[in-house]
Design a binder for these strands. Structure first.
Lengths: 230, 230
DNA sequence: TTGAAGATGTAAGCTGGCCTACATCTTTTG
DNA sequence: CAAAAGATGTAGGCCAGCTTACATCTTCAA
């Protein structure tokens, strides 16, 4: 139980809650383990829960008609996902899949609602989170329309560094979740081959280091400026 | 006052409210007129109000660094906009501009909050609306990544027909707000010239009719299938 | 340890759609 | 009503990035 509580504390929305409140919410939740590759929810499944990721990485994606995938989000530990169930979603419009062994805490949406109908400030926090996500998506829409693949990758990496970054001994920032070029391709809406090329470009410029499924950012500022200033 | 009330009634979110509730909310609102081209709010302005469009058309857009625009939404009469202020947005991340003479009803976000902290079911409605908007944007993101300009235009037109369509005497559906090719270009993330070309393509296929800033859909089903089935 | 599966690297060819550059309409404004 | 402003039409040149097609490298399960 202490363990549950710890993770809930890290997540944004919950930072506004008191100790007791959190314990009560934690008592409403169920803990589940998912193996790498396992599905948390599928398209069109009823939207019954909200999830809190404790350990691991979750990929949120959509499937287009001919089976092309678009990755909407990579969820880091301490973040919630599946929150669309709170926004009136009856059945899932996305799917969630564990890309590594993960530990997930799930809360029935009804419980969640009951809980924070008593906590107005909490409801506001959730609203704010939702708003932030929306701005994020709108930003991506804009980028997709106006930026080159090279720039989109640079933007993705800086964002990933901020959200999923781990500082490494020699000063760089390592992106924690392991991403294939294919993943990146879907995240930025490009082809796998082009991503490989552009990553090597960044590597040649000394901005990043890559090893197998692992990207380390050497020079975060330069990477960020690459697009900002243009 | 009756007039105010009438428009509020048409809007989705408000359909759940009782007669008295609506009258009370209407009494909190202020009515403003905006001439064509006028700005309702600008980027970075404080997000103080929610707006309800009574007459006219509002364009919601974002502006990138070098002035590239992306149109996020075209708001029709009876719909609300600027609702991001309810989602914890402190200052506007978008701008809103009247594309024709418009009549707008504005409500302070504080008043709005006070009002529906007393009405839980209303809060849920707002949440649902927000969720729907989000799915819509995610869908556009996907389309932008995987569909050709031709397809994106076809998709836009079918959506516009459903949301802004007016049935015309001879059976077609006219898209009410007047759109320039430039507008469409920004809506689908393409260049103005390409839009002109592709529209003429659709015209040649007998799917739409165009006259100056006015598009009528001749064959809505065929237009929709154009992309769905592929 | 050895496949097999998946990830990454590389390269040639093709093309959708951008950009540039005008010409012609339509509308608005003075 | 004339001129300016904005909308639309057309066309050639060009290139980012997709496709296709392999080769190689890494990991993992048998």
């Amino acid at each position: 139980m202490e363990n549950k509580y710890w993770y809930i504390k890290r997540s944004d929305i919950f930072s506004v809650m008191s100790h007791e409140e959190m314990e009560r919410l934690a008592s409403l939740s169920t803990m589940c383990e998912f193996k790498k590759g396992a599905t948390i929810y599928l398209l069109d499944e009823p939207s019954e829960h909200v999830y809190l990721l404790k350990e691991g990485t979750i990929k949120i994606s959509r499937l287009g008609q001919d089976g092309q995938e678009i990755i909407l989000d990579i969820v880091a530990p301490g973040e919630i996902f599946g929150e669309m169930s709170l926004l009136g979603e009856d059945s899932r419009s996305t799917m969630a899949q564990a890309t590594e062994d993960s530990l997930i805490c799930s809360i029935r949406k009804g419980d969640f609602f009951n809980f924070f109908s008593a906590h107005n400030d909490l409801a506001f926090k959730v609203l704010k989170l939702v708003g932030l996500k929306r701005v994020e998506i709108e930003t991506r829409l804009e980028e997709l329309a106006y930026c080159s693949v090279f720039e989109r990758i640079a933007l993705l990496l800086t964002r990933m560094a901020k959200r999923h970054g781990v500082v490494v001994v020699d000063g760089g920032i390592k992106i924690r979740p392991r991403l294939t070029h294919r993943d990146i391709a879907f995240l930025v809406g490009a082809s796998r081959e082009t991503v490989t090329e552009q990553l090597n470009q960044l590597k040649a410029q000394g901005l990043i280091d890559t090893s197998f499924m692992c990207i380390t950012i050497r020079n975060p500022d330069a990477l960020e400026q690459l697009v900002t200033e243009r």
